[in-house]
Design a protein around this nucleic acid. Sequence first.
DNA 1: ATCACGCAAAGATATGACTTATTCAAGAGG
DNA 2: CCTCTTGAATAAGTCATATCTTTGCGTGAT
Lengths: 231, 231
Amino acid sequence: MDIQGLPGRLLADLGPAIASGEIPAGTVLRSEELEARYGVSRTVVREAVRILESMRMVAPKRRVGITVQPKSGWDVFDPMVIRWRLAGADRSAQLRSLGSLRVAVEPAAAGLAARHATDDQRRELSALAVELTVTARAADLKTFLKHDIAFHATILKASGNEMFAHLGDTVGAVLTGRTEHQLMPHQPRPYAVRLHREVADAICAGDAELAEQSMRTIVVGALEELDATLG
Amino acid sequence: MDIQGLPGRLLADLGPAIASGEIPAGTVLRSEELEARYGVSRTVVREAVRILESMRMVAPKRRVGITVQPKSGWDVFDPMVIRWRLAGADRSAQLRSLGSLRVAVEPAAAGLAARHATDDQRRELSALAVELTVTARAADLKTFLKHDIAFHATILKASGNEMFAHLGDTVGAVLTGRTEHQLMPHQPRPYAVRLHREVADAICAGDAELAEQSMRTIVVGALEELDATLG
DNA sequence: ATCACGCAAAGATATGACTTATTCAAGAGG
DNA sequence: CCTCTTGAATAAGTCATATCTTTGCGTGAT
């Protein structure tokens, strides 16, 4: 889990409940009620609520209570919020949003990686591309997923942009969610695998243009597949 | 301010200090020390620290203290973190990162806006483009900035993607910081202004390709100018 | 030199008392 | 009958204090 201790347990319960809409916007919670419900002290409730407040999911107000805020105000880039939404009823919307974000960011990251990646990173990408090919052919989805995540994360890191780099975990969550919820074919498409290898080769060769273009094909394809599956 | 009350004041002091590197990674703070330094109670310190923990800027540990974490772990997408970094010594690095992010996201957003914008949004963009032209000619930087921020925010919103939409404030902060720190010419470049109008027209006409292309020229230009200015 | 043990340090939690802001309604005044 | 003032009720915010729990580190025995 993320935050440790009792506040973490509160968060782990309240966060997903709010993120999924189970506790709808406008609902007013009271500290005392939360203390009773979870059998914890004010201290714990306050700390958990403070964190939710910093994500703009709730807004405590004197004489009123703790009001659940509308989704439009949430910190949608907060990793916890993303995870909670992916885990709950809001998964489709979250996957769509993240899909578009990937289409915007990952090609750019691939282009930058072709310029800035270290030799180690280039080697790593090559190795991962090989692994992807092998595990795809063997239809070993679990291992494939692991390497796919590493592949995309490595490129984001290799871009040299700290903000891109931090999207590695998020992309990982997307790929995991996609696999876990049967939004993937039983065996990765050979064409997609070939594109991964193309990206790796382009980055190794320092061909930013090609890396960007191939990566765009990958993520656009993923987004289209998602749209098709979700209707 | 962001977070209310005394914890907010603590945050407003500690956050920027850590973000700017004034309190370097590895520094160990103790609750008691913070209580004394700010003359507040345990409760307040703990809540502030919890929030910093949720941003991964500090990590409390029993028997050790509250350790300031290295920048690489921070939640670099958190709006507060971004603001703190923009305000302090880390401004250049933050502006560069955000510049690349803009290059990735804003063209995509403009393309999506051309497809999904409401009629109101299209009208608003047209109006803003006119305002930009007028205030640029008059060298009224303050008003120009205001409309420039609105322009980019409107496009991000009009993209229909909630994550893009949330970058509106961030982009606004970038533009503000750029103007405030003399990283802008005294009078906006006519060419750039013309491009804004082109984007607005393309979105109004539903020409996604052109909107994306023109927006890319804008943000790439901004990034190059930034790189040139910062060396 | 290594390992087990126990102390002490620092955060984590609980609780009662008190403060402050804010809503809402009752009552005064128009 | 409506408006404005005022005050009481309420829920969050803060403080002080006590207690619990974990864990780093030193001590001493093997």
